[in-house]
């Protein structure tokens, strides 16, 4: 298939950018979207033009490195699919495809389609962990975890940290990313001790960088792992509770 590509080019973080138009021909429909860009880049190099910079690593939809806004949709038109797993058969011959980087103040464009996403790491550093020093762990079967709870935690933990939720959100909010990590840990018995401390610290750090949630649900649609916005509600509840809860009594189990 032959395609026209409108691709955002920007030499570095400080400069302005604009769309450049390229034609690529003879693309196989079995190719992935990024392989199509590889072909473009080889053409560009051989014609003496600097290749388009874009980030991608595992190309299996799990590392979360890749991410492009394709025709106005983060990760492109296929649901529950990261950019690297998107294939050209989802496009039609002769189509014009517009490619843009993630846009958010917290994700400054570094070059062309590459953005810096380290604020997501800052959120994890604020509390996205269970304090379990190496070697201090009890036997793995000491704490039973109901299967349903483990499954729900896994649903949340499936987040690949690509930032598509931020890119998709009309408000540039990172609630789905943050909520997914909070839910993963807060749903497990091991995560209870730090539950409210974690929620408060992660939400506060998130809000230093990102917008707020107005419940559009756009993040859930863009998420390559189909993480549910139900987790955002859970985060909101735990955050509110973190303000009320008398944490001195967290060690007490509810009786009856």
């Amino acid at each position: 298939m032959d395609l026209t590509l409108r691709i955002w080019r920007q030499p570095d973080a400080e400069s302005d950018g604009d769309f450049h138009v390229y034609a690529v021909k003879g693309i196989s429909s079995d190719m992935s979207f990024l392989e199509m860009l590889d072909v473009l880049n080889e053409q560009l190099i051989e014609s003496g033009e600097e290749p388009v910079e874009f980030d991608s690593d595992c190309r299996e939809g799990i590392c979360g490195t890749c991410g492009l806004v394709i025709n106005g949709v983060p990760h492109g038109p296929e649901r529950a699919t990261a950019t690297c797993q998107l294939h050209m058969r989802k496009f039609s011959d002769g189509e014009t495809i517009t490619v843009e980087p993630w846009r958010a103040t917290a994700f400054p464009v570094q070059r062309d389609l590459v953005v810096e996403r380290s604020p997501l790491d800052r959120i994890i550093e604020a509390g996205g962990y269970i304090t379990a020093p190496t070697g201090a762990a009890p036997d793995a079967n000491e704490i039973p975890v109901p299967k349903e709870a483990a499954d729900a935690a896994m649903d949340a933990a499936a987040c690949i940290g690509c930032g598509a939720c931020v890119a998709a959100c009309p408000n540039g909010a990172a609630q789905l990313f943050t909520a997914a990590k909070i839910a993963h840990l807060n749903l497990l018995p091991q995560g209870q001790a730090e539950r409210y401390r974690r929620t408060e610290a992660m939400v506060d750090t998130m809000e230093e960088f990102f917008g707020s949630c107005t419940n559009h649900g756009e993040c859930e649609e863009a998420c390559p792992k189909e993480i549910s916005i139900d987790f955002i509600a859970m985060m909101n509840r735990d955050y509110i509770r973190s303000k009320f809860k008398n944490r001195k009594r967290l060690g007490q189990k509810k009786v009856g």
Binding site: R6, F19, E100, R103, A104, A106, P170, G172, A173, H216
Partner: peptide, 15 residues
Amino acid sequence: ARKVPYKSERDYIAA
């Protein structure tokens, strides 16, 4: 939170 807006037209799905 998004000082530089998208330059191409967004295609909203859920919103």
